[in-house]
């Protein structure tokens, strides 16, 4: 079963919604948190509906609408959303009001909109899409499992599956996760600091893809997708990469570029160092989280970047030198070194 990406839409800490720009102007955000650059949402959603939407809902809806517009499809057959954190902003609002009101009064709108499936639901409401609608919540594998769900639907004969990854970082969640030591404590310059100190840089974003079994006009093919949870040894990941390539009748020499999930936390990046010394030795690699920051569905950004590179057969001027035409890109991401995901993306 072949799965192709017909089109993509993305909102991130970069100007990624502008397809023509395609990261031409790289945005360098400092600190321990990268914030998504948001467009004027009235271009995507009726002003009356925007008033109830939190940031993540607006980001998800706008990315989905841009994806549909780029794909020339008005009505997808299904909508599948992957998110780990869900709608944190609304969750924080209704919990805070419950406390303020001594647990006697709920804030209805924030409560209703706080559930993880709000983004997928709002997209369906806007489109009046009565098809399959599912939200997958599975930490660092949320997006990968959404893609697997989409693949199963495509196998059953459906087409044009709108599949996305959305996660936001709020002031509250950043403060809480910082207490767990997930994010760096010191303020930093742009990108992912290599300071050998604990923690990474928080990120957020929304990515949507229109998946199809038709190769014609598609940006790229998702040739292989594999997940590995907490590998015992770094060699396990290396072996899985070798196996994945073998199953596609390829070797590492056929891979033009490796997009890695290196996140600047020395505790998490040992795997990247190991792979760069072994299987990725002599390969051009690009750590994508310097653009997006770290979040559980960040592989959505990596897939957007990859499909843009392969689909457009060009890279921004500042990007590492890569051979053209691009045939195969390997995404080797991990969320906090627990959830590892491998994608083999090929030109159509």
């Amino acid at each position: 079963m072949k799965v192709y990406i017909r089109s993509a839409g993305n909102i991130s800490p970069q100007h990624s919604l502008d397809k023509e720009l395609f990261l031409g102007h790289r945005i360098a955000q400092g600190g321990s948190r990268m914030t998504a650059l948001e467009p004027d949402y009235t271009h995507f959603v009726d002003a009356k509906m925007i008033r109830r939407m939190s940031r993540i809902v607006k980001m998800g809806v706008a990315a989905a609408m841009e994806c549909l517009r780029a794909g020339g499809i008005q009505m997808p057959e299904a909508i599948i959303t992957g998110t780990a954190y869900g709608c944190l902003e609304d969750t924080g609002i209704f919990l805070r009001r419950m406390i303020d009101n001594k647990e006697e009064l709920l804030s209805p709108t924030a409560f209703i909109q706080s559930t993880h499936n709000t983004v997928g639901a709002q997209i369906a409401l806007l489109l009046k899409c009565h098809g399959y609608n599912n939200t997958i919540v599975h930490r660092g594998f949320s997006f990968e499992n959404a893609l697997m769900d989409a693949r199963l639907l495509l196998q059953e004969g459906a087409d044009n599956i709108l599949t996305g990854a959305v996660d936001e970082i709020t002031a509250d969640s950043h403060a809480i996760l910082s207490r767990f030591g997930i994010y760096k404590k010191e303020m930093h310059g742009p990108g992912i600091p290599e300071d050998q100190k604990k923690g990474t840089v928080a990120g957020e974003g929304a990515s949507f893809f229109l998946l199809t079994h038709q190769a014609q006009g598609a940006l790229a093919e998702i040739r292989h997708l594999e997940t590995i949870y907490k590998p015992k040894h770094f060699g396990d990941v290396e072996n899985r990469i070798q196996q994945l390539l073998l199953e596609s009748s390829l070797t590492i020499d056929d891979v033009d570029l490796v997009i890695t999930g290196h996140n600047g936390d020395p505790a998490h990046d040992e795997i990247d160092i190991y792979l760069s010394d072994t299987i990725f030795r002599n390969k051009t690699t690009f750590p994508f989280k310097q653009l997006s920051g770290e979040y559980p569905t960040a592989s959505g950004f990596a897939l957007w970047l990859t499909s843009g590179l392969i689909g457009g057969q060009k890279a921004p001027e500042w990007f590492p030198a890569i051979p053209l035409p691009l045939k195969h890109i390997l995404i080797c991401n991990h969320d906090l070194n627990a959830h590892h995901a491998l994608y083999l993306i090929s030109a159509c």
Binding site: N101, P108, T109
Partner: peptide, 13 residues
């Protein structure tokens, strides 16, 4: 209808 719920809460609060 969601606004109606908000108005009920507004009256109470």
């Amino acid at each position: 209808s969601i606004d109606a719920l908000e108005l009920i809460v507004l009256l109470q609060q």
